[in-house]
Measured scan of single mutants.
Amino acid sequence: QEELVKAFKALLKEEKFSSQGEIVAALQEQGFDNINQSKVSRMLTKFGAVRTRNAKMEMVYCLPAELGV
């Protein structure tokens, strides 16, 4: 569980995922086979993730800066 949270936060820091499906796929690539869209959705809510525009003006998920991840 701890490893999943770390990987999840690291992915969001990249600010390149525009959908929950993309986050699920990226986590599965890292070996988290039991991850699915509903789990990702709950984690996004739990950590207060928001959708914002990145440098390329794409809408992407990211974590609020005050979490200091």
Rank of each mutant, 00 (worst) to 15 (best):
D33I: 12
F8W: 01
S38A: 14
K9P: 00
E2R: 10
F32Y: 08
K16Y: 04
I35W: 03
R42F: 14
L4S: 01
L44G: 00
V69E: 15
K56N: 13
K16R: 13
L12F: 05
Q28D: 03
R42G: 12
E2Y: 10
L12M: 06
E15Y: 06
R42C: 09
S19Y: 12
Y61D: 01
K9M: 10
E2G: 11
A10S: 12
E22H: 08
Q1M: 12
M57E: 10
M59T: 06
I35H: 01
G68T: 06
E15A: 14
E3A: 13
R53L: 15
K56W: 06
V60T: 03
S18L: 08
E14R: 06
K56D: 12
Y61A: 01
A26M: 06
P64C: 12
N34T: 10
G21Q: 14
V69R: 03
Q28H: 11
Q20F: 07
L44S: 01
L4H: 02
S38P: 09
V69G: 15
E66C: 15
N54W: 02
K56L: 10
E29M: 10
G68P: 15
A26P: 00
V5W: 10
Q28I: 14
E58C: 02
E22V: 04
S19I: 05
G21Y: 12
E2N: 11
N34S: 12
V24H: 04
Q37L: 13
E58H: 05
S18E: 07
E22S: 11
G48V: 02
R51N: 03
E15W: 06
P64M: 04
S41Q: 13
G31W: 01
K6L: 12
K56E: 11
K46V: 10
N54G: 05
F32W: 09
R53Q: 14
M43Y: 06
K13E: 09
K56C: 02
G31C: 03
T52Y: 08
A49P: 02
E58R: 06
A55Y: 06
E3I: 12
V60I: 06
F17Y: 15
Q37V: 14
V24W: 04
A26T: 06
T45C: 05
S41C: 05
G48I: 02
K6W: 09
G31V: 01
A26D: 03
N34K: 12
K46A: 15
N54V: 02
G31Q: 03
V50F: 11
M43A: 02
V60W: 03
A7F: 07
K13L: 12
Y61R: 01
Q30S: 08
Y61P: 01
K39T: 14
D33G: 13
R42A: 14
V50P: 02
